[in-house]
Structure formats: structure tokens, C-alpha cells
């Protein structure tokens, strides 16, 4: 099981064993990076968040107590770092509202797959942060409902509500304008 092998690897990684460190990085960095990328809409910032997340993890490992899954804890740290960055970004742009970007998909075939993906990624990053987090964790990553709720520190019912609103908002931005 991932949980028990996590404990073994955490113990060995805390002792500085490179193989265990590599295993933890290879297992969890894609999920953390993907979450940060979807939340922030910026690869460079997402990489910074990923590095900060793992630095915090290394500091926490020697005193690690398995009250939560390592994966859950790690994603929660990453998510909180993203919230911090989004808050600072909002504060910085209060005086200067960001330029409105048209993210609607067009009904004609001119929009190729790459543009479609870009539009969806931009629309997710533009969602309210908790909606973006819920959608990323549940619809784009393989987290169970319970784990996603645990990462976000909310109930499964609240998660469902956020998901429904996220999908409605995405639909409004991406599809309904193209249908008009």
C-alpha cells in the first residue's frame, strides 16, 4: 500500500537516503506541480510553489507523525501556498484591474486542440480559488472525494457544491458564449 510504503520512505528520506528522497519526489511532484499550475495559471510560479512545498516537507520529515497521508499533507501545503500567492496577486492588482481575456470557445473549427486546452486552462485559473482547487483535485487529478475534501479541509458536501459551481462557471465562460 502507498501509505505504508510512504512511511518507510519518509523514515529513510528523513535520514537523508537519496533513493527514498528521489522516490518521494518522483511520486508526488507531478501532482503538486499540476495543482499549482492549474491554480496559478503560471508554470514558473507553480515550480516555485512546488519547490517551497518540498522544502517544507523535508523540514517536517524528521518529526513526521502519520496522522494524515503524506500525499494529503503535501497537497494541502501546496494549496495553501497557492492561496497565499493568489491573495498577494489580488492585492497587487487591486489598483490596476487585469485585462479581461475572452476565453469563450468558438463554434467554428478554427480553434484547434492546443487553443482549446489553453482556453480551458485559463478558464480554470480564472475561477474563484476554491472552485479551481476542487475542480483540479477531482476532475483533473485522481484524488478520491474524501482525499480532495481532506486536502481542502472541507466536507464532501461542500466539495460537491464547489464542483457544481465550478463546472457551471466554466460552462458559462467556455461554451454558452459560443452557443449564443
Amino acid at each position: 500500500m502507498a501509505f505504508s510504503s510512504d512511511l518507510d520512505q519518509i523514515t529513510r528520506a528523513a535520514a537523508g537516503e537519496r533513493q527514498a528522497v528521489s522516490a518521494l519526489v518522483n511520486r508526488y511532484s507531478p501532482g503538486v506541480l499540476a495543482l499549482a499550475t492549474r491554480m496559478l495559471g503560471d508554470r514558473g510560479e507553480a515550480e516555485d510553489v512546488t519547490q517551497e512545498t518540498f522544502i517544507r516537507a523535508w523540514k517536517a520529515l524528521p518529526d513526521w507523525e502519520p496522522r494524515a497521508k503524506f500525499s494529503t499533507w503535501l497537497h494541502r501545503v501546496a494549496l495553501n501556498l497557492c492561496y497565499d500567492r493568489l491573495r498577494k496577486r489580488r492585492e497587487a492588482t487591486m489598483a490596476e484591474p487585469p485585462e479581461q481575456v475572452d476565453m469563450a470557445l468558438r463554434p467554428d473549427d478554427a480553434l484547434d486542440q492546443a487553443e482549446r486546452v489553453k482556453a480551458v486552462e485559463a478558464a480554470i485559473a480564472a475561477l474563484p480559488e476554491r472552485q479551481a482547487a476542487a475542480l483540479t483535485l477531482c476532475a483533473l487529478q485522481d484524488h478520491s472525494q474524501a482525499e480532495a475534501a481532506d486536502i481542502m479541509e472541507i466536507s464532501v458536501e461542500a466539495l460537491e457544491s464547489l464542483l457544481a459551481r465550478a463546472r457551471r462557471a466554466l460552462r458559462a465562460v467556455l461554451m454558452e458564449r459560443s452557443e449564443a
Binding site: Q113, R116, V120, L140, L170, L174
Partner: peptide
């Protein structure tokens, strides 16, 4: 339709 759009979003790899 929404599932298809979300399913087209690629994985992010370090």
C-alpha cells in the same frame, strides 16, 4: 461536453 473539455487538459510533468 464539459467532461470532454476537462479530459483534454494534459498532465503537467516536472
Amino acid at each position: 461536453d464539459m467532461d470532454a473539455l476537462l479530459g483534454g487538459v494534459p498532465d503537467v510533468m516536472p
